[in-house]
Design a protein around this nucleic acid. Structure first.
Length: 461
RNA sequence: GGCCCCGUCGUCUAGCGGUUAGGAUCCAUGGUUUUCAUCCAUGUCACAGGAGUUCAAUUCUCCUCGGGGUCACCA
């Protein structure tokens, strides 16, 4: 069975890049009928927080991603790691290093001055003497010094590293006993049964070290898929500095989970010319072997397009629900079908849609000078008065009712349709542009329409 | 700097030796619309450069250039 994972360190919110690897891991697990598990990598006690974990979970919930089984917290697994450290020590595959931080720093500086690679020199590799006083040792693993380390990557192909270029006896346990990242990752992936690792390619250079751990412990090496980074518009790794990288910001801005997921899945992956993918289709069609090798630039133009696409294709009942968090309550509005039908084609985000609704249902308090100048000229007010009289004499309900009354005025006064449309539009909204005026009138009702016409005439005479 | 990865329209991408290099987005223009938006149509725009291999290279190889990632007792 395929088991994939998402293993964030809880140092902040869930960001776009993390979400993408989580999504791809999720899709692949589900495609294979396998499991997608979540592991919180909170070994760095100083930097992680419970709130960050909760923030990640909350984002998952919003997007409809759910991890299988219990969540694993590395901070609760010290005994497990300690056991393996002891095993390696007992087997002579790891050793205690009494080099102080000062000595290490000095070594590095010397190497840098000589333009050599900065690497631990292995001075305690075969140490059998008396340990220096007052130094808490770190544990280092014995790594191969020569030969080739092969990483078989499902995205990039087989990558060869020379041990002498990249490996030294790296630390697996700190002076305080806490295990380090490359060590615990290998152990947990093995213990949790993870056999397909999909992660960012910034981890590619860590992989040889993890392979060293796998081999020292005799574990099977999982399949790796290193997915390229998402870059900002400057071509650099996407970071918090680039503005909206918190997934939950997208909810705030009025994006739908479906649009965000669809956008992300198409970054570095495609299925022919298809652009729109339902969640089910993503699961059915995704395969990590089809992931592109090159990084992609994060550009939200397409996200906007996808979002408007999904808004247009969402039922009005559902939209009414989705709008509530943005301060618009339409769920029991009797004309919400008409209103949303007219409005959902003009909004890129739910937030915009909410603003459009508010604009319609609110009596205008100001009138744009430009619109006034263009619309309230010639006999505009007479036309509006005439329309008011028509309204008073009838009981219109639907947009077509309002439209028919407009037609009557137009033919009776022998004017073009624009002569009534334009003034009416500005009277109703205080500006040019917007949805059909018959729709607006039907939504706000006869009384409100009359009121807006009267007010417009009064204020602009 | 060492090591590793990458390089098709502005952006997301299709392509897997022979194509008028396709789609989407963005942008522009036209149509539809009382207006705006939607929608429809049309258009502009790309194989980083150089050597090979081959009858034939966007596709394979090498070099150059460019970009990125990573080099901790962080993850």
């Amino acid at each position: 069975m395929v088991v994939t994972r998402f293993a964030p360190s809880p140092t902040g919110y869930l960001h776009i890049g993390g979400l993408r690897t989580a999504l791809l891991s999720y899709l692949w697990a589900k495609n294979r009928g396998g499991k997608f598990v979540l592991r919180i990598e909170d070994t760095d006690k100083a930097r992680n927080s419970e709130e960050a974990t909760q923030a990640i979970l909350k984002a998952f919930e919003w997007l409809g991603l759910e991890a299988d089984g219990e969540i694993t917290y590395q901070s609760q697994r010290d005994e497990i790691y300690a056991k393996y450290i002891k095993q390696l020590l007992d087997e002579g595959k790891a050793y205690k290093c009494y080099m102080s931080k000062e000595e290490l720093t000095q070594l590095r500086e010397t190497q840098m001055a000589a333009k050599e690679r900065t690497m631990y020199d292995g001075r305690y590799h075969d140490f059998t003497g008396t340990p220096p006083e007052g130094v808490a040792p770190v544990i280092r693993i014995k790594s191969p010094k020569t030969g080739e380390i092969l990483v078989h990557d499902g995205v990039k192909g087989t990558i060869s590293f020379q041990a002498e270029d990249i490996l030294d006896d790296f630390v697996i346990a700190r002076a305080d006993g806490a295990p380090t990242y490359n060590f615990v990752v290998a152990i947990d992936d093995h213990l949790m049964g993870i056999n397909e690792v999909i992660r960012g390619d910034d981890h590619l250079s860590n992989t040889p070290k993890q392979i060293v751990v796998y081999e020292a412990l005799g574990f099977d090496i999982p399949a790796f898929y290193h997915v390229p980074m998402i870059h900002n518009s400057n071509g650099k790794k996407l970071s918090k500095r680039d503005g909206a990288t918190d997934v939950m910001d997208y909810k705030e801005m009025g994006y739908t989970p479906q649009a965000l997921l669809n956008f992300l899945v198409r970054l570095g992956w495609s299925h022919g010319d298809q652009e729109i993918f339902s969640f089910e289709e993503m699961i059915e069609l995704f395969n990590p072997k089809d992931i592109n090798k090159s990084a992609s630039i994060y550009n939200t133009e397409k996200l906007d397009w996808l979002n408007s696409h999904y808004i247009k294709n969402t039922s009005n009942a559902e939209l009414a629900e989705l709008l509530t968090p943005y301060g618009v309550v339409l769920t029991s509005h009797d004309k919400k079908e008409i209103l949303l039908d007219a409005l959902k084609e003009r909004a890129k985000t739910l937030k915009e849609l909410a603003a459009l609704v508010t604009e319609i249902v609110t009596t205008p308090s100001e009138y744009e000078a430009k619109a006034v100048k263009k619309a309230f000229k010639d006999a505009a007010f007479e036309v509006l008065e005439a329309y008011s009289e028509k309204l008073k004499a009838n009981e219109p309900h639907l947009p077509t009712d309002y439209h028919a009354l407009m037609e009557e005025v137009v033919s009776e006064m022998e004017i073009g349709f624009g002569k009534i449309g334009m003034p009416l539009r500005v009277a109703l909204l205080g500006k040019m542009g917007g949805p059909n005026i018959d729709v607006i009138m039907a939504v706000v009702g006869k009384e409100e329409t009359l009121l807006r016409i009267a007010k417009a005439i009064e204020k602009n005479s």
